[in-house]
């Protein structure tokens, strides 16, 4: 479990994180979203006990990170931004070091290392110095270090940054497979990732928390949510047909591919009405689709105007 109360970090006049409060329970995967410099990393650093909050508090697995730092850190697996590791060490040496720092020695340590190595597919590079590895492997080494002690709480700062699409997919399924009994917080600026792994998303910008909802709730805030889009050869006729549907609030035509999008009035569903209207007018459509909400659009509308003035990440 992770809990923050009015967690804030100020650097002189600059407020990097402004009174952020939330609670994450086991089984939840919380996605931290926000533009660069929004305060995502600073918040994570404070929860991980690396930075001291200016005010407010954070606790990991019930331990306050400032008053009981060692217990909190024992319960926590943390992947810092950029997945730093000691470059001159071989992967195995590095994992041995982490295991030993975590008090995992002997057989127990070996088993945990084997498990992490297997999950992140590091077998082939175990004896290689980390400096010689590709960016994707380095990140996986960092991840292996973070999950090594099978922590109850995981904080991963951009876990899939620098990975190719296949590796991204693997890391996401790794996170999903661990999600059941752990409390996981990841930061990302890939919106597709929120869909793929998160059960909940918090959007922050300028150090302030602007939204806290499930990905589908966020999508429902999109103006595209429940909109209907279609492409047809007969654009004018289709537009005319759509404008006669009572619950359609607006119609937009993409200037590039002439795709028509009809937006419903709030709370209304228009798919059936639209398809009936098109049929009645004998408009043939190449394709007709019910739009899901667009997270990127929600993200933009929430974060813009809120000002991404925080200079640090």
């Amino acid at each position: 479990m992770i809990e923050t109360r009015e967690l804030s970090k100020r650097y002189g006049n600059l407020t990097a994180v402004d009174a952020i409060s939330f609670k994450v329970e086991p089984g939840q995967v919380l996605g931290f979203l926000g533009p660069n410099g929004a305060g995502k990393s600073t918040t994570m650093k404070m929860i991980a006990g690396f930075l001291a909050p200016t005010s407010g508090s954070a606790s990991v697995a019930g331990f306050d990170v400032e008053t009981r730092p060692l217990e909190a850190r024992r319960a926590l697996g943390y992947l810092p931004e950029g997945a730093p590791s000691y470059g001159e060490m071989a992967v195995r040496e590095f994992l041995d070091f982490i295991a030993s720092m975590r008090g995992l020695d002997g057989d127990a340590g070996e088993r945990r290392i084997d498990d992490a190595v297997g999950r992140l597919q590091l077998e082939a590079v175990l004896e290689q110095p980390i400096d010689t590895l590709s960016k994707g492997f380095k990140r996986r080494v960092g991840l292996a270090g973070a999950i090594l002690h099978d922590p109850k709480v995981l904080i991963l700062d951009e876990p899939t940054d620098g990975l190719d699409p296949n590796q991204k997919q693997e890391v996401r399924s790794l996170i999903n497979s661990m999600a059941r009994d752990k409390t996981i917080v990841i930061s990302t600026h890939l919106l597709e990732e929120v869909h793929a792994v998160c059960t909940r998303a918090i959007i922050i910008a300028g150090g302030r928390m602007l939204a806290d909802a499930t990905p589908s709730e966020l999508e429902a805030r999109s103006r595209y949510f429940q909109a209907v889009s279609l492409s047809t050869a007969n654009v004018e006729q289709a537009k005319a047909a759509l404008s006669r549907v009572a619950d359609v609030a607006a119609i937009e035509i993409d200037p590039q591919d002439q795709r028509i999008t009809a937006f419903p009035k709030p709370g209304r569903q228009i798919f059936v009405a639209v398809s009936d209207a098109l049929k009645a007018q004998n408009v043939t459509v190449r394709e007709l689709a019910l739009e899901p909400g667009r997270l990127d659009e929600v993200f933009r509308s929430i974060t813009q105007g809120a000002g991404g003035k925080g200079a640090r990440t």
Partner: peptide
């Protein structure tokens, strides 16, 4: 190299 963050968030 940023490893200070790794080191000091270990127990």
């Amino acid at each position: 190299s940023g490893t200070i963050e790794l080191l000091l968030t270990l127990p």
